[in-house]
Design a protein around this nucleic acid. Structure first.
Lengths: 233, 233
DNA sequence: GTCTATATGTAGATAGAC
DNA sequence: GTCTATCTACATATAGAC
């Protein structure tokens, strides 16, 4: 006579392991999708490729992430809180600093740095995420997402800049700021053209010069000079 | 008895009509593809959509334009000579003008204007072409085409700017110029974010302000200020 | 030059076995 | 939670009739 089998449907450890495994799979899928979308864009990637890259089967992607659009949106949302927090912390640090108030150079440096550092950092997923943003911000199609995710912090910086000089025209400032962001994004998207055009002659094989952070100071200087010239006629 | 049929295999008029009809169809297909690619990108458009938009059948597209990639490349190439000629003419006019040599503002204005005017002009095909360029220039994937098609004129402008001041560092100038181009392209791609961020409060329905040429002076000022600040430490 | 028909592969999405 | 199998639709490309 066999002893009655002990059923432990609510064994918490078992449940945890199950959830953990599910969560790990979910992350694997998101990571794979992040890498692929950042390289080839939304339309350039199939769910099959994502499944393959993640080492899971097709059905698993749908189970964890819903439709392709849901998956894409999830990826955009996943890291935005971290990035926004870094930008807000940089702004707060400038403000809380004793001494003089922040100038335009410092503000733009603070806005640009968290993103550039993510784009150039050691974590390949963050690098992919940064490149993905560079791909979508200019695209009308994704602006509804961008507005929700990135505009709030952008507005905080715009107001910080406006507070430098009450006479600044908001629309001109917003325009110059968006142009600055476009410059920043283009740098993350690709430095190929810069490297090529830096050569005086066409023939020389272009080499080096593709380290992103090496461009930071020049980028910030460009943005500051551009904003000042555009906003103060 | 019937008279011998006159065979006129080389009837020139007939040949001309045939070629003309083929040429017209070819243009219809290119125009349709130009509109669709500019709105949705290379991967976002199918040959079926192009055929449908052009009012021809699927086979016709392949017959006139080869593969999808061939078609894309043809579209990029079709208008580049006109655009480059306009930019070169603007540069030549500045140079041949009596009086003082052109300054940086005038040079950037000359580079930017033909493109912005095409993007804002009355011809919807040129508008589509301009938007298509804005979509591809930042994309590593298409840089081989961009290098062939657009870099030659860009180099002429870079040299014109360098000749303003022999001490200008080429690599810094090339970087700032490419950042300027990115700003220009982002303006053509979309003004949605500018319009939204120009509103102080989030709620107000964004309106107006989307006329491209209205941004020209501000864009050129932004580029000039940016280049000067980035190049002359 | 044009169009129909089709070859061949892949897309996104999901139902149901395990 | 995962995987197989499959549905339906659409992709690119081309061969051959007219």
């Amino acid at each position: 006579m066999t002893p009655p089998r002990i059923v432990r449907e609510n064994d918490p450890a078992r449940e945890d392991r199950r959830l953990l495994r599910g969560e790990a799979t979910r992350e694997k899928v998101l990571d794979a999708a992040e890498r692929l979308f950042s390289e080839h864009g939304f339309d350039g990637v199939s769910i099959r490729q994502i499944a393959n890259e993640a080492g899971v089967t097709l059905g698993v992607v749908g189970f964890h992430s819903g439709s392709k659009l849901d998956l894409f949106r999830t990826i955009l949302e996943r890291r935005v809180a971290t990035l926004s927090a870094a930008r807000r912390a940089a702004l707060a640090e400038l403000r809380n600093r004793s001494g003089r108030p922040p100038n335009l150079y410092e503000l733009m440096h603070a806005y640009v740095s968290p993103y550039l550092e993510a784009a150039a950092g050691g974590d390949p997923q963050w690098r992919a995420y940064a490149k993905l943003i560079a791909r979508i911000v200019d695209d009308e199609r994704w602006y509804p997402y961008v507005r929700d995710l990135y505009d709030p912090v952008a507005r905080e910086y715009l107001e910080a800049i406006q507070s430098l000089d009450a006479s600044i025209d908001r629309a001109r400032l917003a325009t110059a700021f968006v142009l600055s962001v476009a410059s920043m994004l283009s740098l993350v998207a690709s430095r190929s053209r810069i490297v090529t055009l830096s050569q005086e002659k066409v023939d020389e094989g272009a080499q080096g010069g593709s380290d992103l952070l090496a461009y930071r100071d020049l980028l910030v200087a460009f943005c500051v000079g551009g904003i000042e010239r555009a906003v103060f006629d």
